[in-house]
């Protein structure tokens, strides 16, 4: 059993109006150090990889459902899961 942490972000070429709004707020607060804000999603999955290679399962799920590759990119980290 593995714990898979998936990070979904808008592709570089896609404008992120939410990120721009948040950056505007940060600037209003005085955090002028911030030069860019991009907002994404974080998903945590417990995956049993005993019958299929984990990378294969995760990539398939990401490309079919978890992300829309027209507008989003993804990356993921894998950890040993602690069975509950």
């Amino acid at each position: 059993m593995k714990k898979v942490k998936i990070y979904v972000t808008l592709r570089e070429s896609v404008l992120d109006p939410q990120g721009s709004a948040v950056m505007g707020a940060l600037h209003t607060m005085g955090y002028n150090q911030v030069e860019d804000v991009r907002i994404g999603k974080y998903l945590e999955l417990q995956v049993d990889d005993s019958d299929r290679p984990l990378d294969e399962i995760v990539k398939e799920m990401c490309e079919k459902l978890l992300t829309n590759t027209v507008i989003e990119d993804y990356r993921y980290d894998v950890e040993e899961a602690v069975r509950k």
Binding site: V14, L15, P17, Q18, A21, N68, V70, I71
Partner: peptide, 17 residues
């Protein structure tokens, strides 16, 4: 229809949020 691949492209959050 775009998510299902029957039409190209995608729909994003409105620019003015």
């Amino acid at each position: 229809l775009t998510e299902a691949g029957l039409l190209p492209g995608a729909l994003l959050r409105n620019k003015n949020l």
